[in-house]
Design a protein around this nucleic acid. Structure first.
Lengths: 229, 229
DNA sequence: GCCACAACGAGAGCAGTGCTCTTGCTTTTG
DNA sequence: CAAAAGCAAGAGCACTGCTCTCGTTGTGGC
């Protein structure tokens, strides 16, 4: 067992090392990751890497899962502690933005355009939903504590779909609430991607944190986390 | 001159044909466009393509500019006519979404993560700003006609930056207004990208147009285009 | 302790890529 | 009409993902 344990441990270490070097390449060269270059950096033949990852896509998937979890950790850290729901929401969104700014390529990896032909495997959807579920949780806590201001109800088929989602996570919560939370998440993503991918040039250059907070405060208002517009 | 005109016309046609085939490849294979495959489809040597585009990046840039203009055309068509600002805003955003759904790869090309090492040349920023300028125009018209509900003013450094932008396009308009317009544009992008890139699975599946309209109506409220939340 | 077996690393090789250079040919131009 | 410029094709370079084969080395069962 101990011998086998050694093998397994070496294998785990090697796997992690490959991912580390790949992440470094990702940070410098961008998304078109070269498996051969990673192998060169590790001083091994490119074919040896295939002992650890069946394909380049599989390596990318591993990096994607790690990125989702890294982002999820950062967001949960920022949202921890018993504070006002509004503060938690604002701190979570700010933390997500800061995570993205600290490593734009990892953000692009998970929220940018998917690489052609790449179909996200099932393993990714769990980690991928951590941030939105965290936001939903904050909203849920606020709702249960009666700290969410009322907003006019919504109708239509999408409202019914949202009710199904609400019943699974926050039974009794109005569809509008989960819709607003989801909407805030999409706005969050759009604002960050735009800033990262250069869609914000020649407008807001200096005080981007302020502009970002302004947008998130507006979303908080739509959710009902505050009444100050 | 007529002979030279013939040469130039043939060259223009050839250039257009390459772009057309490249767009077709883009629609099927995704963003990693193969110049050689395009050349094969055209029955010519790959080296011949370089007579028309100095590099693969240059071809991509041409496609990006075309895509921006195609989207700009669609948006302007949807926003034309003397209607209420709110209706114009909603129709423009809906048209942008429909354009994206009709050709997801072109959307990914312009609003997805930029390809590594690719720096958008100056030629693209003009076409790239058409949609946001159109939205700004709608807001400006509404503001001048006194049809924008008042919202609390904003302060801070980003507010000053937005004032500079406002003074260039809509002198006298409050910074909050241009901030809200820009914010709506970012939300628009986020909502569409999320829908296209599969971030919306297992929540809203059926009535996505309805959910999208809900989000855009909320943004219209923040701008002040309506008082109905 | 030995031996079969699985895991492993390296190298060669295949098909594909972007891009360059040279070679002929055609069209435009002075 | 000749010189110059534009054009298409092919060979070639360096790179990619991936496969296959070959020795080597560590591992579990007898």
């Amino acid at each position: 067992m101990s011998a086998s344990g050694v093998r397994a441990r070496v294998r785990a270490e090697m796997t992690e090392e490959i991912k580390t070097v790949a992440r470094r390449h990702l940070a410098t060269d961008g998304a078109n990751l070269s498996l051969r270059a990673v192998a060169r950096d590790l001083g091994m033949a490119s074919s040896a890497v295939y002992r650890y990852f069946a394909s380049r896509d599989e390596l990318l998937t591993a990096l994607i899962i790690d990125a989702y979890n890294s982002l999820g950790d950062a967001a949960e850290r920022a949202g921890a502690g018993p504070r006002e729901p509004l503060d938690r929401f604002l701190q979570i969104t700010a933390a997500v933005r800061e995570w993205a700014l600290a490593d734009p390529h990892q953000w692009a990896l998970i929220y940018g355009s998917p690489v052609p032909g790449y179909q996200a495997p099932q393993d990714t959807i769990g980690p991928a939903t951590r941030v939105i579920l965290l936001i939903a949780d904050v909203v849920k806590d606020g709702y249960k504590a009666g700290k969410i201001a009322e907003r006019p109800p919504i109708t239509g088929r999408f409202a019914e779909e949202l009710r199904v989602v609400a019943d699974r996570f926050t039974p009794g919560a109005p569809p509008r609430l989960v819709g607003a939370a989801l909407s805030a998440f999409l706005h969050l993503n759009g604002a960050i991607s735009a800033e990262l991918f250069g869609q914000l040039v020649q407008s807001v250059e200096e005080d981007r944190p302020g502009f970002f907070a302004f947008q998130m405060r507006n979303q908080a208002y739509l959710i009902g986390l505050t009444d100050e517009l």
